[in-house]
Design a protein around this nucleic acid. Structure first.
Lengths: 171, 171
DNA sequence: AATATTACCTTGGTCGGCCAATGAATGCGC
DNA sequence: GCGCATTCATTGGCCGACCAAGGTAATATT
């Protein structure tokens, strides 16, 4: 076994930035952090029977009670088809119940099952753990700063790619 | 009751944090930023015939020339199967050429096609644009700070969930 | 040399996520 | 009332990403 190279070393953590990405170091970091963060979330959620991404939907349901699917879509800002499929799986796994909306025959009302409500505290705890894992070693100032900067970045990314002269036409 | 205050025009940009996620505001922000960032990258790459995620592999190939698939896997820190499928599609779309490694009959050598090399500058430009889009409005200090914090977070997420021994300082 | 291990890649499955296109019900304008 | 546009949700296709399992070849062990 010659590989004296740190059995569990950091494969990708050695930030070897590709040349073509040198123009976007932060973007690169965002991508890597995103994947790692998702993986970490996935591990924590796995024990709860949830897949990463489903928590957002469940959280909305826990918060808001029975809602239209369109509300979920708007709240999570996801593609309708994404939500449809996710809900089908969540229904299959017993986390969610769906029934037609009596008021609008094309709409569907979604609500969290009682069983899933038992997960609420676990998911909250998992998220707290994830947060701590993510921010370990950062003091309060750093955390605030990171939150602030991410918020700025999010706002930036919410604007269309190259057409945000912050002045759309009349309406 | 029935305060319909959340029924506003802005879909997701209004940071209405679910209650269950209040324990992890930064994690939530990371998730949202990640998705938005990926979407932005996707839009920029679409015109170049690439899908988000493929750039990383291509960048490695442009940097390193013909490499083993395992090198790519290690460099990008992706699942082998992910790389296999991605390369199959990249080969199909003409961005990549693969041939068996004469030195190791189970290995595969991968290289960027000449055609794809023409994309290098475009991808670099796209990444620069993405970076600017991401960081618009942040001054140099903020950008440095964000890079620093993301780096810290990345390091955190590289450690297993509850196991953070002394980390190697990497040269 | 024969066997066991390990490394390399592939296949098949699953999920989240997107887009495009479709069908069904509602609502608006005429 | 009738027709058209909107909204709601679904389907199918695609891609990235994961895991689990498998097959083949190189290497270590015996």
């Amino acid at each position: 076994m010659s590989t004296a190279e740190e059995a569990q070393g950091d494969p990708a953590c050695t930030g070897e930035l590709p040349h073509a990405a040198s123009s976007g170091p932060v973007s690169h970091a965002v991508s890597r952090v995103a994947r790692l963060h998702r993986i970490a979330a996935g591990k924590l959620l796995k024990g709860l029977g949830l897949y990463p991404g489903q928590e957002f939907v469940m959280m909305r349901l826990w918060d808001a009670g029975p809602v239209r699917q369109s509300e979920l879509i708007k709240a999570a800002d996801l593609d309708p088809s994404t939500v449809t499929k996710m809900l089908q799986r969540l229904e299959q796994s017993g986390h969610v119940r769906r029934c037609p909306d009596p008021d609008d025959r094309r709409a569907v009302l979604v609500e969290a099952t009682e069983r899933s409500c038992a997960l609420l505290s676990d998911v909250s705890a998992a998220w707290a753990e994830l947060e701590e894992h993510t921010l370990r070693g950062l003091d309060e100032d750093d955390r605030r700063e990171l939150a602030r900067l991410l918020s700025r970045v999010e706002a930036n990314l919410c604007t269309e790619t190259a057409d945000c002269p912050e002045r759309r036409g009349g309406d």
